[in-house]
Amino acid sequence: MPMLQEHKTAAALAAVFLAASTAAGFAQSAGKEGVTKTELGSTPSDDMMKAWNIDIAPDGRNLPDGSGSVSQGQEIFASTCAACHGEKGEGGEGMIGGRLVGGKDTLATGKPVKTVGSYWPYATTLYDYVHRAMPFNAPQSLTPDQVYAVSAYVLNLNGIVPDDAVMDKETLAKVEMPNRDGFVQMDTKTLAKTTACMKDCTPLDVSK
């Protein structure tokens, strides 16, 4: 019977294959044991880890070497940032980047102006963000010295560091932001007020 013969051949082949693969250490197994923890993926090179590891912690960990002054920052800002944020970071009509300066004491007024100066809790976030995302049209194009310098300038425009300030990994981590304690860490608050009333309920307030 040709059918049976074919089957036999297939079975024999499978047995040979199984024996061969077991010999080479590739035992077939299904289920969870099929993937062992460290089988997949490879170890990143030191170069790769260094190049990719760009985040700056709020305590200043991972800030790179280099430095920049307020006056150097002013020059860089004028040529690479001002077109979108205004000459002095004031933002305004037609500026695609928005305001980076001012808004002091506005957070509780009902008309808050949230800027680096009035709202941001950490100066390290300024370095991290400008380095990874700005200028908007050429992200990651600035050197550490340039990022330190524009950070110094934006902080100076907000009256947080003096005119002669120089930012580096020591000084930037020490800058105290005005709104440092302005945040309460919590998950979304549950409102318990509204009940699932079914009959004779208070109508929805649809006044503007």
Binding site: L107, A108, P112, G182, M186, K189
Partner: peptide
């Protein structure tokens, strides 16, 4: 910090 935080009327913001 700058974004995706919720500013309350008292000027404090809820984070996370």
């Amino acid at each position: 910090t700058s974004k995706y935080t919720d500013l309350m009327p008292d000027g404090k913001a809820r984070q996370f």
